[in-house]
């Protein structure tokens, strides 16, 4: 018995080795480099000087940057909330439909096209001279084009479009696994339809919901191309500043410090959500 256990341990270690190497090489080490760089002095021509400094973190406190950080949080929260609100009915309908495969297929199809091309397609749709405005004007619904692009609206809209599938897929998987007869049981016991969904179904699909939240919130938080291409004057996000600091102003420590802040904020967010999720689960278990 003992030998078997040992063998299993060795095997487990071997099996997890590739993943471990991968995570160390491409996740832990880069993050460590970013963290170290953020505490160094900037080099005159880019790069870093190996002298410890808090200059980068002091620079972030500059009000211009704080505005951008606040804007990034604001855009991310709204876009994620819309993604989740839209993904629940969609996943529910998919899970109950007879044409599941077809719907899954439809959701995956856009990924066959490069995301940049899809952003450019949105530019064509939303422009003042674009398809939507032209059609509305031809139909006589509006007389002047609506400004739909180069503002916060277009940034949030395109972000929702880009990341909605990442919310639908995990949520769909969770709902699909849910035993719908439980809903019938709840109703037999005198629970209303909506209450049944909220009280019985929601707790059961919580993990799918958190996955959806994480898969949308984190990438949106680090968005770069969408605010760059469809954003206007006041829609720069932290991702854009990071690129500017590396590519234009040659301030690598500041870019690193921004990355550290991004990582920290999203990590704290995720941990808090996971924590509250667990607590509720425990409470539910006690109740049961």
């Amino acid at each position: 018995m003992k030998r078997d256990k040992k063998r299993i341990n060795v095997r487990a270690y071997l099996y997890s080795l590739p993943m471990g190497i991968w995570v160390t090489l491409f996740f832990a080490i880069p993050i460590a480099i970013i963290l170290i760089y953020s505490f160094l002095e900037k080099g005159l021509y880019g790069g870093v000087e190996w002298r410890a400094s808090l200059a980068a973190y002091k620079a972030i406190l500059n009000p211009n940057f704080l505005i951008v950080i606040w804007r990034t949080v604001y855009i991310s929260v709204i876009a994620t909330a819309i993604c989740l609100l839209l993904s629940f009915p969609a996943s529910y309908a998919m899970a109950r439909s007879r044409h599941q495969t077809l719907f899954l297929f439809l959701i995956i199809i856009p990924f066959w096209t490069n995301s940049l091309i899809r952003v450019y397609a949105w530019i064509n749709l939303l422009s003042t001279e674009g398809l939507i405005n032209n059609v509305l004007i031809k139909l006589g619904i509006i007389s002047e084009p609506i400004p739909m692009i180069y503002n916060l609206f277009s940034v949030i809209l395109v972000l929702v479009y880009m990341y909605l599938p990442f919310a639908i897929l995990p949520l769909f998987t969770a709902i699909d696994r849910f035993d719908f007869s439980l809903l019938d049981a709840a109703r037999d016991l005198g629970c209303g339809r909506l209450r049944a969904i909220i009280l019985v179904m929601f707790p059961a699909i919580r993990s799918g919901f958190f996955n959806a939240l994480i898969f949308t919130l984190i990438p949106i938080f680090g968005a770069y191309t969408v605010p760059l291409l469809v954003g206007g004057m006041g829609s720069t996000m932290v991702g854009n500043i990071i690129v500017d600091q590396v590519q234009k102003t040659r301030n690598w420590p500041l870019a690193s410090a921004f990355s550290v802040i991004l990582t920290l904020i999203s990590m704290i967010g995720v941990m808090a959500m996971l924590g509250s999720g667990k607590k509720k689960e425990e409470m539910n278990e006690k109740l049961l």
């Binding site: 530019i123 064509n124 422009s127 291409l229 954003g231 004057m233």
Partner: peptide, 21 residues
């Protein structure tokens, strides 16, 4: 200048200029 321009752009403006935007 800034109040009159729609954005600072070095990436995609030429396409929109071509389209008459």
């Amino acid at each position: 200048w800034k109040p009159n321009i729609v954005k600072f752009d070095a990436e995609s403006f030429a396409k929109s200029f071509a389209r008459g935007e």
